[in-house]
Simulated scan of single mutants.
Amino acid sequence: MAAPFVVYGASGSGSVPIEATLSLLDLPYRVEDHAPWEGQAQADRLARINPLRQVPALTLPTGEVMTESAAILIWLADTYPDARLAPPLGDAARPAFLKWMTFVSSAIYALYWIADNPARVVKEGADHVAVKARIYDRIACCWGEMGAQLRPGTHLLGDELSVLDLYVATASRWSPGRRRFYEVAPGLADAVRRIDTDTRLAAIWQERFPFEPGWER
């Protein structure tokens, strides 16, 4: 029997779309919870997996470790093409898929490294609230740009679910929150809500990113 995948992450974090993908692919995996934002000890536990002390990371059955959420999701989708979780090479939707996967990673997700701890770049604690507000404005702006350019079908890239849907459904729940996401990118709302209510993902959402009362903020 092949070794299972090992996901390093935490509830509500960027590991959730990876866990959801593995679940949809019906691949064996286990999760090791690490929340580096909870303190240096937690962060240091990750050093042997990812020297940047960040999640998510994924150990493959070969023992190789992958980091970077977008790269992991693209790799999983391309490695198991029969599941059709990404447009294949040569498909007309492939350029848009790669564009938006990297856009979410670089233009949106990367900003949380500062938002989670503004002291990493701003010394004065009195300025941290303003810094976070500006970052959340920038994130909303980026979601708005994505909404202005994409014309979803049933899902974000047409009528088939892709790992992009899982990525956006997770990241759009982080601050500034889903309500603002709906305001700036209303054209994406139905496709993302469809992922929220996909029965195949119900157990993952309940366990790893539950929809608590008032979650849309």
Rank of each mutant, 00 (worst) to 15 (best):
2 A>C: 06
3 A>V: 01
5 F>P: 02
8 Y>E: 02
11 S>I: 00
12 G>K: 00
16 V>C: 03
19 E>V: 13
25 L>V: 10
25 L>I: 10
29 Y>C: 02
31 V>Y: 05
31 V>R: 12
33 D>R: 15
39 G>E: 11
42 Q>E: 15
44 D>R: 08
46 L>R: 05
46 L>Q: 02
47 A>N: 00
49 I>W: 09
50 N>D: 01
51 P>V: 01
57 A>Q: 00
59 T>L: 04
60 L>I: 02
63 G>S: 12
63 G>T: 07
63 G>Y: 13
67 T>P: 06
69 S>F: 00
69 S>A: 12
71 A>E: 10
73 L>Q: 13
77 A>G: 08
78 D>V: 05
79 T>Q: 15
79 T>Y: 04
79 T>R: 15
80 Y>R: 01
81 P>G: 02
84 R>D: 14
86 A>R: 03
88 P>Q: 14
89 L>R: 15
90 G>E: 13
92 A>L: 05
94 R>T: 04
98 L>F: 03
98 L>D: 09
98 L>M: 08
98 L>G: 07
99 K>A: 10
100 W>R: 04
106 S>V: 15
106 S>N: 14
106 S>A: 15
107 A>V: 06
109 Y>M: 11
110 A>Y: 02
110 A>I: 00
112 Y>S: 12
113 W>T: 06
114 I>P: 00
117 N>F: 15
117 N>W: 12
119 A>I: 07
125 G>H: 01
125 G>Q: 09
128 H>S: 09
132 K>L: 01
132 K>R: 15
133 A>R: 09
133 A>G: 04
133 A>S: 09
135 I>N: 08
138 R>F: 07
139 I>M: 10
140 A>I: 02
143 W>S: 04
145 E>H: 14
147 G>F: 11
148 A>Y: 05
150 L>W: 09
150 L>G: 05
153 G>K: 05
154 T>K: 15
154 T>V: 15
154 T>H: 13
155 H>I: 00
156 L>C: 03
158 G>L: 07
160 E>V: 04
162 S>H: 08
162 S>W: 09
162 S>R: 10
164 L>C: 09
167 Y>G: 09
167 Y>S: 06
170 T>F: 01
171 A>V: 13
172 S>R: 03
175 S>F: 14
176 P>N: 08
177 G>M: 05
179 R>D: 14
180 R>H: 07
182 Y>N: 04
183 E>S: 02
187 G>R: 14
187 G>Y: 08
188 L>T: 07
188 L>K: 06
189 A>N: 02
192 V>Q: 03
192 V>C: 03
193 R>N: 10
194 R>G: 01
196 D>E: 12
198 D>H: 08
199 T>K: 07
200 R>S: 06
201 L>G: 05
202 A>M: 07
203 A>T: 08
206 Q>R: 15
206 Q>E: 14
206 Q>S: 14
208 R>H: 12
210 P>L: 11
210 P>S: 08
211 F>M: 11
212 E>D: 04
213 P>C: 05
213 P>Q: 08
214 G>N: 03
214 G>H: 08
215 W>D: 02
217 R>I: 06
